[in-house]
C-alpha cells in the first residue's frame, strides 16, 4: 500500500507548552508573525448552577497542516505548484513553480498556509522534509515533552501511528462543507472541533472558473471555422479553379 505519512495525536496529554510551535518556527525559520503549526484550546467552563458537575478545564489541541487525502488547496492551485506527493502522501509546495498568487490560502479550511513575506511563495508544513531526509522525525514530534504527537506511515501496520489508530477510536477534524480526509487523527476525542472554515476561492479564481469554458469555446469555434473553411477550399478547388482571383478582375 502507498505510504501515507500522518500524525496521530493524543490531545488529552497536551499541556499547551507550545514547544512544538517553537521547535517548528526555529527549525523551519518561520518568519515573525506566521506559524506552520499551532496549539488550539477549548473554552474552559467554571461557573454554572451545578458547578462541580459542569466544571470543564480547557482542552489543548496540537495541530498543523493535515496533509489531506482530498486536499482543497491542491484543487485551488492553478499550476500544480501545490501537490500531494505520491511518494509519502504529504502535501507540498514546489517553491520554484509557485509564484505566490495565494489561490490556495483561503482554500485551506485549517488556515495552514501563508504567503512567505521574503520568499514570496506560499509556505506550509512539509512534515520537516529536510529532517526526514536524514532519518529524523519532524521537529514538533521530537520536541513534544508529553509525546502527544505520534508520526508515521499509517498504511504500514507496523508503525506506531498505525498501531495507535488500530487500537483506539479516533476522530478527524473537517468542515461540514467538504470532507478533506485529513491525515491528522485525534485519539478518542478532542476539542475544539468547530474551528475549520469553509474553503474559499479568491474572486479571481471564481471568475476564471466561470469564464474558462467561454475562452476555450471561442478558441474551439474559431478552430472549427478555420477547419471548415480549409475543408471547403480543398473540396471546392476542383469545381472552380481560381474562381476567387478571376471574378473581381472583371469588376474594375
Amino acid at each position: 500500500m502507498r505510504t501515507q505519512l500522518a500524525m496521530v495525536i493524543d490531545s488529552s496529554t497536551c499541556i499547551d507548552c507550545k514547544a512544538c510551535m517553537v521547535a517548528c518556527k526555529v527549525e523551519n525559520q518561520v518568519p515573525e508573525g506566521y506559524w506552520r503549526n499551532w496549539v488550539k484550546s477549548s473554552e474552559p467552563r467554571y461557573a454554572d448552577v451545578d458547578w462541580m458537575d459542569s466544571v470543564r478545564p480547557a482542552h489543548f489541541q496540537p495541530g498543523g497542516c493535515m496533509h489531506c487525502s482530498n486536499p482543497t488547496c491542491v484543487s485551488a492551485c492553478p499550476t500544480g505548484a501545490t501537490y500531494k506527493d505520491e511518494s509519502d502522501g504529504a502535501v507540498k509546495v514546489n517553491d520554484r513553480l509557485c509564484i505566490g498568487c495565494g489561490y490556495c490560502i483561503p482554500a485551506c479550511p485549517y488556515g495552514a498556509r501563508y504567503r512567505h513575506p521574503t520568499r514570496h511563495v506560499v509556505d506550509k508544513c512539509d512534515f520537516c522534509q529536510h529532517r526526514r531526509d536524514r532519518g529524523e522525525l519532524p521537529a514538533c514530534v521530537t520536541t513534544c515533552p508529553t509525546k502527544a504527537r505520534v508520526f508515521g506511515d499509517i498504511n504500514n501496520p507496523k508503525s506506531d501511528a498505525a498501531q495507535l489508530l488500530k487500537q483506539n477510536r479516533s476522530i478527524q477534524i473537517v468542515h461540514e462543507s467538504v470532507n478533506t480526509q485529513p491525515n491528522m487523527y485525534y485519539l478518542s476525542a478532542t476539542a475544539p472541533i468547530n474551528w475549520p472554515v469553509k474553503p474559499g476561492k479568491p474572486d479571481a479564481m471564481q471568475f476564471w472558473k466561470l469564464i474558462n469554458p467561454s475562452i476555450w469555446g471561442v478558441v474551439g469555434l474559431n478552430a472549427l471555422g478555420v477547419l471548415l473553411m480549409l475543408g471547403k477550399q480543398i473540396l471546392m478547388s476542383h469545381d472552380k479553379p481560381a474562381a476567387d482571383n478571376s471574378s473581381p478582375e472583371k469588376e474594375s
Binding site: 492553478p78 505566490g100 514570496h120 479568491p202 474572486d203 479571481a204
Partner: peptide, 15 residues
C-alpha cells in the same frame, strides 16, 4: 516571485 506584489494583483493577472 522577486518582490511583494499585492496578492489580488497577482491573482487577477493570472486570469
Amino acid at each position: 516571485q522577486y518582490g511583494t506584489v499585492a496578492a489580488e494583483l497577482v491573482q487577477w493577472s493570472i486570469v
